[in-house]
Amino acid sequence: MAESFQEVLVTEGVSKCYLPGHPYAVKEVNLSLGRGEILSVVGPNGAGKSTLIQMMLGLLIPDSGRVRIFGHDVARDRRRMAHRINYASTDLSLPYSLTVRENLLTYALIYNMKKARERVESLLSFLDLESFADRKVGALSTGQVARMGIAKALVNDPEILFLDEPTATLDPEISGQLRHLLGSMVRERGMALLYTSHNMREVERFSDRIILMRRGEIAAEGTASTLMERFRTGDLEELFLLLAGEREVEVGG
């Protein structure tokens, strides 16, 4: 796949199989992400979303194919682009004995941010975390931990942000606020956002483009409306259930 000036992330035939003889976790995935774009990757559990993101982050090396970010091969040259990306996942947390403010300062330093303290204070304000900024992580609610995780993911003002189910533990009001903030960062700063979610209404409203994965492969790709039209479903939820089930989906629509 050719990389145009707008594309910040490209995967070229990326495949991963954890155990020889077992099905591929990710198979021959080609996709791209453009500057200022929100791309959702959705699919049932085991579809390969997490493995795909882990290869994009350089945590895993593809068996074949490659991931390029800003033109760099992630498997070989992760250090050249790692400071320009960031990641949050509901599966992760930060040290429990530190406060939110201390954790963010830790990561502002780790990401080599100049004026690290100022950066942390502006993030706390931007994401409205000040009310629990001095509370230890161990004393936070699940939703607060998720919001702190997103703050950590924004600490280096990333050009590409990977969010793995960022709103899964948030109440609808906070989710809406967060989507609004992320949306404005994407539109105003040109940040590219790749995220996964099981909330199809959120995906439908929030994404510029959606990739539906199933059994490690891209089953379909397009905007919410083109996908619903192609598969003749009333909403994405229905399409998701179709994918999650055993019914065969015509790959590529």
């Binding site: 982050l57 350089g58 945590l59 250090r79 790692a82 400071h83 990306i85 960031n86 990641y87 996942s89 599966d91 992760l92 947390s93 930060l94 040290p95 429990y96 990561y107 780790i110 990401y111 080599n112 950590k152």
Partner: peptide, 14 residues
């Protein structure tokens, strides 16, 4: 234990 290792491995440190 604090589920923080992946954050460090994603960060621009080796």
């Amino acid at each position: 234990w604090s589920r923080n290792l992946i954050h460090l491995l994603v960060a621009p440190v080796t």
